[in-house]
Amino acid sequence: MMTYVSCFFLGGFILSMIAVACNPSPFYGSFGLVAVAGFGCAVVVGSGGTFLALILVMIYVGAMLVVFVYSAALAADRYPESWGSGGVAGQAVGYLLGVMVASGFFWKEEYGVLWGFGGSVEELAPQRGDIGGVSWMYSLGGPLLVISAGALLLTLFVVFEVTRLLHRGAFR
């Protein structure tokens, strides 16, 4: 049972990435990325990382993808191309064929049982692995935390500097 479920999640992960990669209009592309994030969450949950999956949902679907969908307004097409229209469907079929050929190349029979993930999947354990890892980041991994916080602060400066004073150059 678990094998089929994880097989479904991994397949959905690949298929929704095909939906992003086959160059639809940005509206549909960001929808595809939401699907990728959802399936990725399911994959991570399936191997026991519930906290990481929660973070992924909160950051991706909750914050970043909203911004992406919002800025899709900048890229509005008059005639948006979804996955049904010609070029996009052709690319999607091409990518799908490529993935199938590659999976046929890498397929081995003994991996049929390995679709299920390893890791500790005792359901209601109070001390799960990923929560321990995150608490490790706050205790011993302090320098890494400082570095990434510094990078986020730097990004604030970067974004302000890039979008500031655009009246100075060619001005629209």
Partner: peptide, 14 residues
């Protein structure tokens, strides 16, 4: 960090 830091320097003239 390197890439992020040089981007506003590159775009400074707008």
């Amino acid at each position: 960090i390197n890439t992020l830091a040089i981007i506003p320097l590159m775009a400074q003239h707008n």
